[in-house]
Write a protein that binds this DNA or RNA. Structure first.
Lengths: 205, 205
DNA sequence: TGACAATGTTACCGATCGGTACGTATACAT
DNA sequence: ATGTATACGTACCGATCGGTAACATTGTCA
C-alpha cells in the first residue's frame, strides 16, 4: 500500500545522496527475469541471488513481490512510451506515418529469436484477478494506448475513428502475442503491412 | 512422455467398462480452473479438492501437472475446432463469410464479463520455455490456425493470401487479448468489422 | 467366490514459495 | 569518539509446491 521507498530511484540517481543502489540492481534484474520468463515463474530468491543482494534488501525497497512486479511494469511503461513517441516524433503531423513507423519497429522486434512480447500484455494474462497491482499498471497502459490510437485515427480523418483505432490496437496486440508464439517468420512480421491496408480501407469508407 | 492413460476418456465413457470416472472429473475441474485463473496459479491440491478426489488419483491418470495441463489444452483444441468449423460449415464455399461468422462469435464472447481469452494463447504466455508440454499443444494449434487462415485467404482470391491470412490471425489474437484486458466495450467487439475492412482492402489490392 | 482394476486413505517427501526477526557493518554528523 | 541512522547479512518462519509410498476399500466381471 506504500508508494514511497521505490520512487526514489526514479528521482534520485545522479546528484548528491545516492543511497538506494541495491534497489536499482534489484529492479534491473527483476525487469529482465520477469519479462523473459514471466512473473509467476520467478521467485524472489532468484532475483536477489542474481542481483547479488539479500532478501531483506528487496523487502526494504519493495513492500512485496507483487509491488516489485508493478514497479517493473511502471518502468516498462516508461520505456514503452519512449519507443512510441520516438515513432511519433519522427513524423510530425502525419499520424498515419507515425503508426506505420511504430509498427514497422514492432514487426522487426518480433523477429528477434528470444522475443517475449509485451510485458504489459503478458502480466495481464498472468494475473487475471482484478485489482492486482501488476494488472492495474498493465490496464492503465493499455487504456492510454487505446486512447492515443483512437485519437490518431481521428487525426487521419477516418470516418469511424474509434473502430480504426481499435483495429490498430488489435493488430498490435496480435503482433505481441504472435511474435512470441511463432518463431522467426511468424505473422507478426506483416503487422505494418496489414495496418496500412486497414487504414487505407478505413479512410476510403 | 506417456500418452496412454488419459486417452481412455475420449474413447470409453458410454459402453461397458466405465472405470476412469475420476480422470474425467479431474480434467473437467482442471479445465475450468486452468482456463479461468491460469495454469501456474492453480495447484494440484486445489484441483483434487474441487474434483472430490485425492492426489494419488490424479497422478494415476496423469503423469504430471504439466501433462495434465497439456491434456486440458488438447481438450481445448477439440472444442476450438468445433467452434471454428461450425462457422465454416454455416457458409459452405464462402470463406469470407466463414471468417466473419467466426469473428462475430469471437467478438460476442469477448464481451462476456468473465471472458478470459484463448486458453492456448494464455498457456503460451505462461510457459515461454520451448518444449514445455503445454506450450507444444498451444503452438501446434496456432500453426494449424495460421495454415487454415492462409488457405481461406487464398480461397477468397486475395493477391497476397499469406499476408491477409496472417493479418486475420493478428486480429484474432488481438481480440483474445483485448477481450480479457479491457472489460465490456473493449476493442475486441470490433474485430469482425475490422476483419471485413482488411479483407476488402486486401482483395482490391 | 475369486480376481482384478480403479479409487480412496493417510501420511509423508524435499524443495521452494513469499516474507520477517534480529543482529551487524558502515557512514556521517556532532 | 560517540551517537544515530541507514543499509546489509544470517538465519529462520509457516505455507504451499509437485509428487509418492503403502495400504484399505470398492465395484465388476468371470
Amino acid at each position: 500500500m506504500q508508494t514511497d521507498k521505490n520512487i526514489e530511484l526514479t528521482i534520485s540517481d545522479g546528484h548528491a545522496s545516492a543511497p538506494p543502489k541495491a534497489a536499482k540492481k534489484i529492479l534491473d534484474v527483476a525487469y529482465d527475469l520477469f519479462y523473459r520468463r514471466g512473473i509467476r515463474a520467478i521467485g524472489v530468491d532468484e532475483i536477489v541471488k542474481r542481483a547479488g543482494v539479500t532478501k531483506p534488501s528487496l523487502y526494504r525497497s519493495f513492500p512485496s513481490k507483487d509491488e516489485l512486479a508493478a514497479s517493473y511494469l511502471r518502468q516498462y511503461d516508461l520505456e514503452f512510451w519512449e519507443r512510441f513517441d520516438e515513432a511519433v516524433d519522427a513524423h510530425p503531423g502525419d499520424p498515419r506515418a507515425q503508426i506505420i513507423a511504430f509498427l514497422t519497429r514492432v514487426g522487426k522486434r518480433t523477429q528477434n529469436p528470444d522475443y517475449r512480447g509485451c510485458g504489459m500484455t503478458n502480466a495481464a494474462v498472468e494475473y487475471p484477478e482484478r485489482g492486482h497491482p501488476a494488472r492495474v499498471v498493465s490496464e492503465d497502459n493499455k487504456q492510454e494506448l487505446r486512447r492515443r490510437l483512437r485519437a490518431m485515427a481521428a487525426a487521419m480523418g477516418a470516418p469511424d475513428a474509434d473502430t480504426l483505432g481499435d483495429g490498430l490496437l488489435l493488430l498490435i496486440e496480435g503482433a505481441y502475442i504472435s511474435g512470441q508464439l511463432f518463431g522467426l517468420g511468424g505473422p507478426a512480421q506483416s503487422v505494418a503491412r496489414n495496418a496500412d491496408l486497414l487504414i487505407e480501407a478505413s479512410l476510403k469508407e
